[in-house]
Design a protein around this nucleic acid. Structure first.
Lengths: 226, 226
DNA sequence: GCAAAAACATGATATATGTCATGCAATTTG
DNA sequence: CAAATTGCATGACATATATCATGTTTTTGC
């Protein structure tokens, strides 16, 4: 059983506001889990009963639309928490969480988190700020979905992926998504996504190395996203 | 200067968690304002420095997209608070607020709200729940924008308007939006919105009484939205 | 290492939706 | 009250994007 006080990830999350005592207490309540790429952490409608702290790896938060297609609403990485919203609203999960890479997560039960809420104001303020950040992002994406073309959204998404998850030594995007997953982020058909990637490739905006992607002309992509 | 303790609206908002003393104190800090239909309460980018409590009337929260079109992200009615997110994130407003009807609002400065956050846990928990509700709604709308057709979105929006704002004695929707505003909610061109309304009208799903709208076959509209 | 499945790619075609143009109705303004 | 502006409505047309079809490449599982 790892010690939360020594967990590096703590520094990036709302948990950084917790005292040493609180962290020790949390370490005794938490459960660590390894999750394989492709595995589901929880599904839409599940009652979660706590939050997951992502120690390593990235997962996608998706929602199934009535047309049978999955939409990727959000990506969550190291240091972030999963399931905060459901916990606070006291509702079943609105989104599913599926690992995009092998992950290390810790589950902290709701009762524990609520205790922190009551006794540590900096902590609850931190969680609030995170959720407010998510809300702002969601509003922005909503506007993009409603007002931008698929091409524009793809351009913006590529930049987002580079900024948020970085690149490997060879310049390829660190977070490797399938064409289908990229399509599911921008809300389009897989074929359309593939076609546009080919087009960007021909224009020299990006380079396709197998299924990996290198952003070549970032400024032009940015302008394309308007 | 009205007394917050006696304000009916208080019962619908997060302020219901405040004590009598806190309400008295708030009454001394607040500023009441009348806002005319069409007037802007604040604009994207403004530093607000507090929250507005909506005592009466409805406003739209919009965001300007780079294509020059306004997108309606959210509607806010009696009892709800404006600018909570910006206040908590300590950022300028991400959205503009424009009155859709004549409004009565009270402005409460940030310092006051932060005091309540620190001393009253039920209050901060209430605000958190509201924001979590907004986040869920935003995620759901995002998926609809990405996955549903304009026709489906229009059907869902009409139902939403009926459920949220109710109907007049003659069955027309209480909240009267222009065609342009409805288009701006569902993220489409005004002409497309008008055409679909005509189509729904011909199909008997709705009835157009001048610019007012009556939902006639709610169940069919629901099914159409899937 | 091979069969099967999944992911990627591209063409042909259909269709939903945006854009431009025009006219009428309703509302505002001087 | 007339004039002007704004909102509503509809047609014609352009185009972005979805869908269907097919082939190739890559990955997976035994």
């Amino acid at each position: 059983m790892g010690k939360c006080e020594q967990c590096i990830v703590r520094e990036f999350s709302s948990f950084k506001a917790l005292t040493k005592d609180e962290l020790v207490h949390m370490a005794n309540c938490k459960t660590s889990k390894t999750i394989r790429k492709g595995e589901t952490i929880f599904s839409e409608g599940d009652t979660i009963g706590g939050v997951f702290c992502v120690k390593d790896g990235v997962c996608k938060m998706t929602k199934l639309s009535s047309n049978g297609r999955d939409q990727i609403v959000h990506l969550v990485k190291r240091g972030e928490l999963l399931g905060q919203r459901s916990m606070i609203s006291d509702e079943p999960a609105n989104l599913s969480a599926v690992a995009l890479e092998d992950m290390q997560v810790c589950f902290i039960p709701k009762s524990e988190i609520l205790t922190f809420f009551n006794q540590n104001n900096r902590f609850s303020m931190g969680v609030m700020k995170t959720i407010c950040g998510d809300l702002k992002q969601a509003d922005d994406i909503m506007v993009n979905m409603a007002q931008k073309t698929v091409k524009e959204r793809l351009a913006l998404t590529l930049i987002y992926l580079e900024d948020t998850f970085g690149t490997n030594a060879d310049g390829t995007l660190k977070l490797q998504l399938s064409r289908d997953e990229i399509a599911s982020m921008i809300g389009t058909a897989t074929e359309s996504c593939i076609r546009l990637l080919s087009e960007f490739n021909k224009l020299g905006l990006i380079e396709l190395v197998g299924k990996k992607i290198v952003v070549r002309q970032r400024a032009k992509l940015e302008r394309m996203g308007e």
